[in-house]
Nucleic acid binder design. Sequence first.
DNA 1: GGTGTGGGTTTACGACGTAAACGACGGGGC
DNA 2: GCCCCGTCGTTTACGTCGTAAACCCACACC
Lengths: 262, 262
Amino acid sequence: MVRNEDTVPMRRPDPDSPEARGSSAAVLPAGPPGTGRAPLDRRRILGAAVEFIDRNGLAALTMRRLGASLGVEAMALYRYVPGREQLLDGVVETVVDELYGDPDVHLRAAGGWQDFLQRLAHGVRRIALAHPEVFPLVATRPPAAPWVRPPLRSLRWVESLLTALVDSGFTAEAAVAAYRAYSSFLLGHLLLEVSQKGVQISPEDAPEGVPDTGTDLSQYPLVVELEELLSRDESAAEFEEALENLLGRLETVRREGRVPGE
Amino acid sequence: MVRNEDTVPMRRPDPDSPEARGSSAAVLPAGPPGTGRAPLDRRRILGAAVEFIDRNGLAALTMRRLGASLGVEAMALYRYVPGREQLLDGVVETVVDELYGDPDVHLRAAGGWQDFLQRLAHGVRRIALAHPEVFPLVATRPPAAPWVRPPLRSLRWVESLLTALVDSGFTAEAAVAAYRAYSSFLLGHLLLEVSQKGVQISPEDAPEGVPDTGTDLSQYPLVVELEELLSRDESAAEFEEALENLLGRLETVRREGRVPGE
DNA sequence: GGTGTGGGTTTACGACGTAAACGACGGGGC
DNA sequence: GCCCCGTCGTTTACGTCGTAAACCCACACC
């Protein structure tokens, strides 16, 4: 019995997936160690670190190996980066700064606040999907201040977002509440999406078609009944739907000029 | 000018905060190393690990130190735990298993699905607040299967949740979609809440009343204008509001018998 | 009284992050 | 020409980590 793997109907391509856009990274030559003879600098190091994590996972990143991937000894990195912790901070900064290079995301809300939040959300999602191994770092590294909430870890974007909201008629309280709800939504959705994506690949790539007889599911009849549905990946649609719903909710908050809770 | 620190009005106590309930852990004697002479076993080790992380942070946990906190050499732990990674898995499991001991959370949805989800959400929130240093681990450790989504990392709870929903009239698709939306919501909210809680304490506890002249905010006028609002902690109310909203949304999904997106 | 055997210790190894001393090299000032 | 001094990368070294392997020892059992 040859099982048809493509029972999932009409795989409409995800517009935020890396292969759906011209990926800017991973095109540079790089290759095995020692190719890059260009002089070291902070940006090159951070870029190499991001690429290294994308390729080998966060756990594999050590100062020595990162140095080797740049054709240099570990200690050479310390002239540009104070230590490993700060290197990781630099990595998350580098990755979220990719937002500035995204032609679909603008710092100023020209098309209204909903358009702004929508573009920003998809921009962040694109980053998460492009760097699934880095995103947990984006999510969990302690932020600089209580108001800089992951995954939007930059004051410039916070300022942009709040400006867009206030300019569109949100009260100060409502804008702040909206900002909080928005970041929670993004963080939860994207962290789960990348972790789910990771788990589909990693478990030692089960070689044959044996559908994971690993754990005993007999205790959980409903889980086995819904197994097909549960393992289906509807991330893109769910993201869209939840985002739409959030925007709708915020719109009524804005119109009624109140803070959501009361 | 003596600033009154209690400008926050009516600090109504958070019902999920650790001090609002009789904490079961941290009451045992324990004390400095060597107090516990009881024989080692897996549960004692995992308990000690949780307590150690709560007290000293995840980064400080090493096999040697954990051993020392139990009055034992590091290598003794390996008789009960295969290695550090699996120890961390055990820590996560231990912490989420506290749900079973929570008298306000039930495995069976006796009071209807909304009551069930509400109790479960608050139970998980209590755990997150009781172990802020552990929760990022709960959020980011790769789950065993794609359908076991953090922070509900146990098949039993997934089965319970799905059963509650299906029994209450959700279609299979709607139940799965609801499960996904619910876990995203929990994860996003709680991860941000504990990370925010962490950042209020950690930055080397700024000793005097100088309100963080660390970063230059002059570029971000709206952020400085809203600074007071932004650093206010309304987590409890926001959690409640967002949860309520989610439940409301799911209720209409249930009544109309459709999957949210279409 | 041997003799396993379970549970903890000792020793040892390779890898890690990083401090400190050490080249090597390239461009002024005399 | 020569010297001298930054800049940038390397070498060496130290303490700590996770963990494999050998060891030790006290008790249970025949």
